[in-house]
Amino acid sequence: MSRRRRRRGPTALDFVVLAAVLAAIGYVGYRVNSVLVYQWDWSAIPGYFFRRDPKTGEWVANLLVKGLTTTVRIAFWGMIISTVLGVLLAFARTSRRLLPRLIGWAYVGFIRNIPPVPFLFLFYFFISTQLVPMLGIDRLLAQASPGTLSVLRVLFGEIALIPNFASGVFCLSLLMAAYIAEIVRAGIQSIARGQYEAGYTIGLSRLQIAWYIVLPQAVNRVVPPLTGQLITLVKDSSLVALISIQELSFLAMEIAISERRFFEVWLVTGLMYFVICYSLSLLMRRLERRALAYDR
């Protein structure tokens, strides 16, 4: 807390840089307006957020809002699954045993060194034809009561699309887990040996030491890079548009094409991602502050 350095006010250089940035923005705006001769037309956009149902006359969510909720759902489950997987992989990579270390090493090496697009296509095929049927999601959905179904609809979206949705979430989570694993591993390896020894002498098991002593401290130390990775996860959730999951980018593409309003649609879409990601980083900053509260 006392370590924080005193911050200086703006200097002349800061104003010069600021002026340069503003000039650059102005120039881009000028080029778009005069050189592209682009006719701005925002009139179609609001209708894609909400539309009036012609039969009932009620306002219902339209494509952009539907896409946004799907993206939020994918990001939410993706964060949970990839974090759990990432933590397990991180412990595997720091294990004393050879086999877990090898598995963790191979997994991270495999994922990090191929681009997400081939991975997505290859694994989507495997996951959607093998893993998801194996989990028996279809069967469970067929047996679910109406009450359960309405809860599931809130959590996972359209019931008929849940297997598809699950495939997308798994693909994304498997990708992100490798990066999260490396971040958490750095945290785990920064924990001093004395912490393990102290846990050992008060009779804790290996698992208890990992869960109660190592993991909380490790995660606290890596909140800033972890925030970056979770934001990447939100943004990269647009990758699952490639496997036809109707999230924000997928639907924005459809609107942009059918309305031929590329700048408007993508500006709005970008802004929507920004709002999600920035809220997330604000949330994580609060977490970071709490995490550092005990640190000297």
């Binding site: 001093a192 846990g199 005990y294």
Partner: peptide, 16 residues
């Protein structure tokens, strides 16, 4: 190990 308590030079308290 539960029967033998130990106090370390560096304390090794759990800071969190």
């Amino acid at each position: 190990r539960g029967e033998v308590g130990m106090v370390f030079q560096q304390f090794n308290l759990f800071p969190h």
